[in-house]
């Protein structure tokens, strides 16, 4: 009861926020932060187990483009096309990840194979420019009459804020579900020693595939949501290596092993980009990535657990030190 109280209060405050304060620009920034937080959380669900995928830009692109294409070309409601996008994303994930896991391609080998995936999704989008608009981008057609639940299009930012908040919260809940599940035990074990995990009875390929498909589908949902909210997508903003690396970067900065790490990462990176944009205007094009790049290198060298992870560890350390003492005397 007591443990839930702060969460409930924080949740209520977040839900109440747009009804009290609804200036369009801050609300827009918050929606963007929530959507990306969800995408980064999706990545970290598998990334935290050493399954470092650089293919998530591809999954995000699939989510965004499948949804938009089915709407424009087939008039299919996002309520139907988003599940199809998730299914497509899951299929691609299985196609690429299964041989990797079956033949034990792990670590940086896995990162490289998945890197090819995000590169190729970008190429496909560009190559099919007759249908997707290529690198110029793509706009889902506006539904007549503005906001529509059927078209999942809303003019007002408050609705989007609540949708994004709900999806983001679902992402955090999934994170905790994984954290508390036996799957976490299996994946922690696998990340250390696949043979020993198999000897304990763990079906290594299956467990890895499950978490990969989960993560890929969540990421595709983030892509679809981004598309519906922004009403404009381009290969560079929802797919490709840059987006994949951006996910890794934000998660590493925020903290890969903690539930809110990816969210913190999203807040920091997006606010940084906005501050640079507002203070320097168009002169600052490229400056945000410049700072990201340097920060990513610095974080990996000096603070690999991320800001939130590092803070939590620093807080836990005095306790751990006292807890370790009696054990030492026993030995």
């Amino acid at each position: 009861m007591k443990r839930w109280l702060p969460w409930t209060i924080a949740g209520a405050l977040l839900v109440a926020l747009p009804f009290v304060y609804n200036a369009p620009y801050p609300l827009h920034i918050m929606v963007v932060i929530l959507i990306w937080s969800f995408a980064y959380t999706s990545w970290s669900i598998m990334g935290r187990f050493g399954l470092v995928s650089l293919g998530h830009g591809g999954f995000m692109g699939i989510g965004a483009y499948v949804t938009a294409l089915l709407w424009n070309h087939a008039g299919m409601s996002p309520w139907l096309s988003i599940p199809m996008a998730l299914l497509a994303s899951a299929t691609i994930a299985i196609l690429v990840a299964y041989p990797c896991f079956r033949f034990r391609i792990t670590g940086h080998y896995f990162a490289l194979v998945t890197l090819a995936l995000s590169g190729i999704v970008l190429q496909v989008i560009t190559a099919t420019r007759d249908h997707t608009g290529g690198s110029l981008g793509y706009t889902p057609e506006r539904h007549q009459g503005g906001s529509s639940i059927y078209a999942l299009q809303f003019i007002d930012k408050e609705t989007w804020y609540l949708i994004a908040l709900g999806v983001w919260a679902a992402g955090i809940v999934i994170w905790y579900r994984v954290e508390r599940s036996m799957m976490r035990y299996a994946l922690e074990a696998i990340s250390e020693d696949e043979d020993a995990a198999a000897a304990a009875g763990v079906h290594v390929t299956w467990e890895k595939l499950k978490v990969t498909v989960l993560s890929a589908m969540m990421t595709a949902l983030a892509g679809a949501l981004y598309c519906q909210y922004q009403m404009f997508i381009s290969p560079d903003t929802v797919s490709g290596i840059s987006i994949s690396l951006q996910m890794v970067f934000a998660v590493v900065v925020g903290g890969i092993y903690v539930s809110l790490g990816p969210t913190i990462g999203a807040i920091i990176t997006i606010l940084l980009a906005e501050v640079l944009r507002i203070s320097f205007g168009t002169a600052a094009v490229g400056y945000d990535n410049l700072v990201y790049g340097v920060l990513l290198v610095l974080f990996i060298i000096f603070l690999p657990k991320g800001i939130l992870g590092g803070l939590m560890e620093a807080r836990a350390r005095p306790q751990a030190a006292t807890a370790a003492q009696p054990k030492a005397s026993r030995a």
């Binding site: 840059s242 590493v252 400056y287 990535n289 410049l290 790049g293 920060l295």
Partner: peptide, 12 residues
């Protein structure tokens, strides 16, 4: 991943 950071840096 660190060289990924360098990728960002060099592009920008």
């Amino acid at each position: 991943l660190a060289t990924g950071g360098v990728l960002f840096f060099l592009q920008s």
